[in-house]
């Protein structure tokens, strides 16, 4: 059995992935740029929308599947990755995208991230990191900088932020990148590469919150602050160097691919298939099992 789905012969444009729903993010939200970059990436991947499942958690950014034509699954706060893994196990042929905010991924769902990474399912996890809880109106988030004053940290945060890049690198993610909506082309390209990477791929998008975010995180500032890793001559196969650069999270705005494993290990689902084939026994085929008529049931009970 092949894990590859035949590529559709059709030509896709970004329009094919844009749903009729109008996003209800605040005007100026970075997430508009993220969804546009996803449309562009998907147009180059050339998988029809019905072969794509887009899973999200809860938060402003988790509305994103609804704005695409892919199958959407708006799940539980912090649980997008376990649910996405369930989907990928049940239907490995789907292209599975996972998205959410920094709270979803690194606060309430933080415990799930290492385990998704070490299983290495072929998922692309896009975090829209805005350093704030926007949907609940501006509380501290796990990536808020120390000292940040919010409605739930009135006198300034006393906690260091989580470093999402270092976090996923430390647990062994095979593809790690960071983008900004201010650089649409770069963001679309790295999402495309993340999808093409055969295994767990992580893209951290510094997606500014126009309503509760700091002025120095907004799109205009991003354009001035961003430093492209490619231009810095970074070798993306060097994991230790990637970790060194990731230390700069919150200080230097590096964009591009931090790390791409040059020898991707087998994915979880490919290992499952291999094991299933090795252990295949004499039990009734599933299709047959699920299509039994009531008379068969009676026979089974009688025997």
């Amino acid at each position: 059995m092949s894990t590859e789905c035949p590529l559709s012969p059709e030509v896709f444009t970004t329009k094919d992935f844009r749903s009729s729903l109008k996003p209800i993010w605040c005007p100026g939200c970075g997430d508009y740029g993220v969804v546009t970059a996803i449309y562009r990436a998907l147009a180059t991947i050339k998988r029809p929308p019905h072969e794509i499942a887009f899973i999200s958690g809860i938060g402003c950014s988790s509305r994103i599947p609804g704005y695409t034509t892919a199958y959407g699954f708006n799940t539980v706060h912090g649980r997008a990755l376990p649910i996405a893994q369930g989907i990928k196990m049940a239907n490995p042929d789907l292209l599975v995208l996972v998205a959410g905010g920094d709270g979803d991924g690194f606060s309430i769902g933080g415990g799930h991230v290492p385990h998704a990474i070490r299983r290495n399912p072929d998922l692309t996890y896009i975090v829209m990191d805005n350093q704030i809880y926007g949907l609940t109106k501006g509380q501290l988030s796990p990536t808020s900088p120390r000292g940040k004053k919010t409605s739930s940290s009135v006198y300034g945060s006393m906690e260091d932020p989580v470093n999402p890049l270092l976090y996923v690198l430390a647990y062994g993610a095979g593809f790690v990148a960071q983008g900004v909506p201010a650089d649409m082309e770069g963001l679309a390209k790295m999402i495309e590469e993340a999808i093409r990477y055969p295994g767990f791929a992580f893209v951290n998008v510094q997606s500014p919150c126009i309503t509760y975010g700091d002025a120095d995180t907004q799109l205009k500032t991003q354009r001035m602050r961003m430093r492209k890793l490619e231009a810095e001559g970074h070798d993306a196969t060097n994991r230790l160097r990637a970790m060194e650069l990731a230390q700069e999270y919150g200080r230097t705005l590096y964009t591009g691919v931090f790390y791409r494993n040059p020898n991707p290990p087998p994915t979880y689902e490919s290992q499952i298939r291999e094991r299933q084939q090795n252990l295949r026994g004499e039990t009734m085929a599933l299709e047959q099992l699920l299509s039994r008529k009531s008379t068969d049931d009676e026979n089974l009970t009688a025997s």
Binding site: S107, T136, K137, Q139, S151, S152, V154
Partner: peptide
Amino acid sequence: YPITPQNEIPEYMAR
């Protein structure tokens, strides 16, 4: 942990 519609309780407590 933040959740609508009770955020004024933690915010009051934070303050």
